[in-house]
């Protein structure tokens, strides 16, 4: 993937989308194949090391550090993954909290957050680590139209900063506006890969995924 590019991944439940993201992020080992990042084989690197290299991720079901405040959640990303210290870490945290609209709840414990804020926190934490590639797992689910627009703006801004995006999403009409390449998976296989418009017209994709949604 080139810097600032964006790939969307769609497919029915159980297609293996999250598993693919886990393999890319180092949360699961691949049963076959390898993962390369900046020309280096990182297949054997741990999840923590991959994050430090610049592969960030969010989780499909948000996994906040519930007993820590929102700021502290983000601070973990900035200091562990981003390896920032002192005021540089604080600055990074405050800027990603502002970007994700979480500043007003910065001092709240994550356990008290609703789903929308939890999803924003997933994104903020991953960004605090300063990723070059960001793996997003269904962060658009449950958003209103206005919130989805805001998310699209954020994604566009991240791309302009040179961050490459891999985004799994069921809300296809939102996803296709953010990505320049779309992959459709089914039963652990890639069944289509190309420009979003072409993939959405693909008969196999309509049969395996889009048709089933109706």
């Amino acid at each position: 993937m080139a810097a600032g590019s964006a790939v969307g991944i769609v497919g029915p439940n159980g297609a293996g989308k999250t598993t693919l993201l886990d393999v890319l992020a180092g949360a699961q080992p691949p049963t076959a194949g390898s993962v390369h990042f900046r020309g280096t084989d990182v297949t054997s690197a741990s999840a923590a090391d991959r994050c430090r290299m610049g592969i960030g991720r969010t989780h499909q079901v948000p996994r906040p550090f519930v007993d820590m405040t929102v700021f502290e959640n983000v601070y973990v990303g900035a200091t562990a993954g981003g390896r920032l210290r002192g005021s540089a870490a604080y600055e990074r945290c405050l800027s990603v909290l502002e970007l994700s609209g979480l500043l007003p709840v910065a001092n709240r414990r994550a356990m008290s957050l609703g789903l929308l804020h939890r999803k924003r926190l997933e994104l903020a934490r991953a960004l605090a680590a300063g990723p070059e590639v960001l793996l997003l797992d269904e962060i658009g689910g449950g958003l209103t139209d206005a919130e989805a627009e805001e998310l699209l703006e954020t994604i566009e801004r991240l791309r302009r900063q040179g961050i490459a995006i891999v985004w799994i999403e069921h809300i296809v009409h939102v996803l296709v506006r953010a990505v320049d390449r779309l992959i459709c998976m089914d039963a652990g296989r890639v069944i289509a890969d190309g420009p979003p418009d072409e993939v959405l017209q693909d008969a196999t994709v309509i049969d395996a995924y889009l048709g089933k949604q109706e």
Partner: peptide, 13 residues
């Protein structure tokens, strides 16, 4: 303490 694998995904060794 709160979530080991989420911590690892944020770079915590």
């Amino acid at each position: 303490r709160d979530d080991e694998s989420a911590a690892a995904s944020l770079g915590v060794r």
